[in-house]
Amino acid sequence: MTPPVTPLAAPGFVEVADRVFVARYRQWDVGVGLVLGRDGAVVVDTRASDVQGGEVLEDIRRLGRDIEVRHVVNTHVHFDHTFGNVAFDTATVHAHDTVARTLEVHAEHIRAAVREDPGAAPEYGYTEADLLQVLATAVRLPDCTFGSSATIDLGDRAVTMAYAGRGHTDGDVAVLVADAGALFLGDLVEESAHPSLGDDSWPLQWADTLTSHLIAAGDPSVVVPGHGRPVDVAFVERQRDEMATVAAVLRERRLGGVSLAEALHEPDARLPYPLEHLEAATRRVWAQLPAS
């Protein structure tokens, strides 16, 4: 779960680059992308349930165009980006190899968490009804997976999917629409909250992964985060640098002999995010690095 989100703009899809649209949804403040081409459309991420995925399709229809969604891309494994896959029954779902291997396990983990605490959380935008929909949704695995990169041909343009290393999860991918200068980065970047460093994140590698994606994308004019409003490259670079600082400080403390208990409770002024937000990241670094 990410920290509380900022207020949403008007609902529905908004064009942010040539035939590239983004819709931002209240529940978990998730962003969904839509890329149009001569030979159909690509949807980037599908929200947290079959019902929410169906709402995405309705919003696409409201654009007033004859749009056929032929492809879906999941930027990573998390339920708020994948559980809506089942609503796109005629589309091919694409994702990184690790998503196919871990989605069912992740789904069971999320369902167990929801059963343990089924209450609403207005600060995250979801209700008890939303959580019941999560529980009721069947998991649809990707149809096509890849290791490093793959391309979707829309006839008059290409949509490129690329894996550059671990970060928010072990299977984050970037989605590039090069002719429009648009880059989707999933939860490798968040605008409405600090990056979500969960118990499946890779804090020591995150910044390098972002750097690789920025280099490969050239100089995109718009970057779409997993949560929040579209941003520019400068925003991504600032957040990348913050993540590099997190990695450097935690690595220094781990290799310097600081105990896990001390690291979890003793502040460090260099850290760009609150210490309580970095608990999972700290535990991950202590598990991933041997003590000096």
Rank of each mutant, 00 (worst) to 15 (best):
C144R: 15
P142F: 04
A112I: 09
A91N: 12
G12L: 05
Q27H: 02
L132D: 13
A234W: 09
A9G: 14
A280N: 03
H78N: 14
Q133L: 08
G167S: 05
S259I: 04
V77N: 10
R229H: 08
G167P: 08
A120V: 06
V159W: 08
W286N: 04
H78P: 00
T160Q: 07
Y25V: 04
A9W: 11
A129Q: 15
I110R: 14
D80N: 14
A164D: 12
I67E: 13
Y126P: 05
T2I: 02
G147H: 13
G53L: 13
Y126H: 13
A182E: 01
W206P: 04
R111I: 09
V246F: 04
H78E: 15
P11S: 06
C144W: 14
N74D: 14
A269C: 00
A136L: 10
T90Y: 14
R251V: 01
Y126C: 10
R157V: 07
A87G: 07
G186E: 01
A9T: 12
T2P: 02
E123R: 09
G171D: 10
P7Q: 03
G33I: 03
L103N: 12
E108K: 15
E190A: 04
A17H: 09
R284Y: 02
N74L: 11
D179G: 07
V56D: 02
D45F: 06
V236S: 08
D199F: 01
E116S: 11
S196T: 10
V249P: 02
